[in-house]
């Protein structure tokens, strides 16, 4: 593999550049995946059957905490990629670790939220509305969970193998994924929670 030293490590080989573009294209597909969930959510939002409506079950506090955690994690992983470009391996690992911890905290709050919903009678089988609510949140949550494992693997690899074109490329792609999850969350925050509580 030819290595081009004029570019940042993550772009330094042809395969790396392809990986990055390929991942962007994958994100295009993810846009459609979540758009479909949103379309379904908006269609079913008021079809509550005998179950509760969104305004009845949403709580602002956990949602705000989740939003703040995810926004901050998106910032720290951005700093992580910046540190990586400066070649500062340890700083980068530290930022990635902080990101994953924030992600873990987010997931914790989300799990609390889910149990709370089920507890107050808004389970998966309650109504079309609760089903699509939990499915939309769950799909995002599953992405975050996958990201936690993926990020952990990347930290381990960077630690062991150092910053090579390969590990830098993986780290950068992971950061794209993480930022994207933040974008999705912003839409969930705005159009599921805030719209529901408006």
């Amino acid at each position: 593999m030819k290595i081009d030293n004029t570019l940042p490590l993550e772009y330094s080989t042809e395969q790396n550049r392809m990986n990055v573009l390929g991942f962007w294209i994958f994100l295009g597909a993810e846009v459609m995946l979540f758009a479909t969930l949103f379309a379904t959510y908006f269609t079913l939002a008021h079809r509550t059957g005998n179950g509760p409506s969104g305004a009845e079950i949403f709580e602002i506090a956990p949602v705000l905490i989740e939003t703040f955690l995810l926004l901050t994690s998106s910032f720290t992983i951005g700093l992580g990629v910046h540190a990586m470009r400066l070649g500062r391996k340890n700083a980068m690992i530290a930022f990635f670790a902080v990101t994953l911890l924030l992600g873990l905290a987010f997931l914790g709050v989300e799990i609390y939220e889910f149990t709370h919903y089920v507890h107050i009678g808004a389970g998966l089988q309650t109504s079309a509305f609760t089903a699509i609510l939990l499915t939309t949140l769950g799909t995002h949550g599953a992405h975050v969970t996958l990201g936690l494992f993926w990020g952990l693997f990347i930290i381990l690899q960077v630690k062991k193998r150092g910053l090579t074109p390969e590990t830098a490329n993986k780290s950068f792609i992971f950061s794209l994924y993480w930022h994207f999850l933040d974008v999705v969350w912003i839409f969930i925050f705005s159009f599921v929670y805030l719209k529901g509580m408006m």
Binding site: T40, L44, R47, G49, L124, S127, A128, A131, I132
Partner: peptide
């Protein structure tokens, strides 16, 4: 992918996306 996911959930997990009751459409 999403349509099949929702359909599978209706059939296996008793959700109400496309059923005739509880707000399904």
């Amino acid at each position: 992918t999403i349509a099949l996911l929702l359909g599978t959930m209706d059939r296996l997990f008793g959700t109400n996306f496309f059923t005739m009751t509880n707000g399904g459409m």
